[in-house]
Computed example of a mutant assay.
Amino acid sequence: MNFPSKLIENAVNEISRLPGIGKKTALRLALHLLKQRETVSETLAHSILTLRKEVKYCKVCHNISDSEICSICTGMKRDKSLICVVEDIPDVLAIENTSQYNGLYHVLGGVISPIQGIGPDELKIESLISRINASPSDEKVEEVILALSTTMEGDTTSFYITRKLKTMGIKVSTIARGIPVGGELEYTDEVTLGRSILTRINYSAD
Rank of each mutant, 00 (worst) to 15 (best):
M1W: 06
M1H: 14
N2P: 03
S5L: 11
S5A: 03
K6H: 13
L7W: 08
E9D: 06
N10T: 14
N10E: 15
A11S: 06
A11D: 03
V12R: 00
S16K: 12
L18I: 01
L18P: 03
G20D: 05
I21L: 10
I21E: 02
A30N: 01
L33K: 07
R37L: 12
E38Q: 12
V40Y: 10
V40Q: 12
S41Q: 08
E42W: 04
T43P: 00
L44S: 01
A45R: 01
K53V: 06
V55G: 05
V55C: 10
Y57M: 13
Y57P: 03
Y57C: 06
K59F: 14
C61T: 05
S65L: 13
S65I: 10
S67C: 07
C70I: 05
C70R: 00
C70A: 12
T74A: 15
M76L: 14
L82G: 02
C84E: 11
V86T: 07
D88G: 12
D88W: 08
I89C: 09
P90H: 12
D91R: 02
D91M: 08
V92G: 00
V92D: 05
A94M: 01
I95G: 02
T98M: 08
T98A: 11
S99D: 14
S99L: 15
Q100L: 10
Y101H: 03
N102M: 10
N102T: 12
G103I: 03
L104N: 08
L104D: 01
H106D: 04
G109Q: 04
G110W: 05
G110C: 11
G110T: 07
V111N: 12
P114A: 06
P114M: 03
I115A: 13
Q116C: 13
P120K: 09
D121K: 15
E122G: 05
E122L: 11
L123Y: 06
K124I: 01
S127N: 14
I132H: 07
S135Y: 07
P136N: 13
E139D: 11
K140T: 07
K140C: 09
E142N: 15
E143R: 04
V144M: 00
V144D: 03
A147T: 02
L148P: 01
L148S: 06
S149Q: 07
S149E: 13
T150A: 15
T151L: 10
T151Q: 07
T151R: 04
M152Q: 11
E153H: 10
E153M: 10
D155T: 10
D155G: 08
D155S: 10
T156G: 12
F159E: 08
F159P: 00
T162G: 02
T162C: 06
T162E: 00
R163P: 02
R163N: 02
K164M: 13
M168K: 13
I170L: 04
V172K: 02
A176H: 09
P180T: 11
V181R: 13
L185E: 01
L185W: 05
E186L: 04
Y187R: 13
T188W: 04
E190G: 05
G194M: 08
R195V: 01
S196T: 06
I197Q: 04
L198H: 02
L198N: 09
T199W: 09
R200G: 07
R200H: 04
N202R: 14
N202E: 14
Y203C: 02
